[in-house]
Amino acid sequence: MTAPLLEVRNLRVHFPAGGGWVHRPRGVVRAVDGVSLSLEEGEILALVGESGCGKTTLGRAILGLVAPTSGAILFEGSEVTDLAPAERRGYHRHVQMIFQDPFDSLNPRKTVLQTLAQPLRNHGLVPAREQRAAAAELLDHVGLSPGRAFLDRYPHQFSGGQRQRICIARALAVRPRIIVADEAVSALDISIRAQILKLLRKLQEEFQLSYLFITHDLGVVRSLCDRVAVMYLGRMVEEGATDSIFTLPRHPYTSALLAASPMVDPEAARRRTHIPLAGDVPSAMRPPPGCRFHPRCPIAATICREAEPPLLAFEGGRRSACHFAAEAPSWTLAAVAKREDVA
């Protein structure tokens, strides 16, 4: 079996909390606390969870923007966490990113040409005199055509959707293998969001890309992503193929996320009865003992307060970290039945 395109093994990213240069840190935020996942060639993997679950930190660790505390990140089977600077550059070429806010992620004082030429120059991919043509071609690919016409404009002359297209063009400039998209469509209006999703899917085919799609929007996940990894408080709680997880979640947190996601269908929405999950996400500085989800879990039992559930394998390459994952149908059946008689 060949190695996956990208593999994360037992990754931890901890940050000191509080303190400063006078006081000692008050504790450690366990933002990512032992997560393993893999991304195959040509796959769209969703990383979902609520604020503070560690999904963004995991994405940043993969991009090399934060240093992991322990664990390994492997690209095509070889470790990237301790590469020499020159080799790191090669890795960075293959893994590019798109962020949530297209207003913050473009330099307002650079023209589109300057923004797009930078990565080309950094990686020495295109001779200087061809950069203009290459940049124009990139803009054509992301639907800003004719690209030539946009090259000398500044970011403030574009709308949010157009800026996100420029960010995508910048990520594509170095012909990456993987794009890490962190809430890339969350700030966009519905009509613009659909345009960008359509574009991302088109580019995936054209450039044989793999996406790590970090989001909290399960509607987007259902339609765009092949596989889903669900995180809660720094841990992976469930993983598997999108359709399989959405029809039969094997972790009560996944169930709760699905039940809380509004449905764009008034009849279906009124037919389902959901009990909202109580309470807030606890602090990642002092995660609850046992299963981290137990204080909010509707089916928590004694064992959940005492022992941390292992990530167990299930049918179809699925994994779930719940003591009661095997009994999933019995506690999710009611919710699923309601969803299915709608479909």
Binding site: I190, A194, L197, K198, R201, R222, S261, M263
Partner: peptide
């Protein structure tokens, strides 16, 4: 708009 209960084959924008 995208729904959680089915997969949209082609995004319509």
């Amino acid at each position: 708009s995208l729904n959680i209960d089915h997969r949209v084959a082609a995004f319509e924008a």
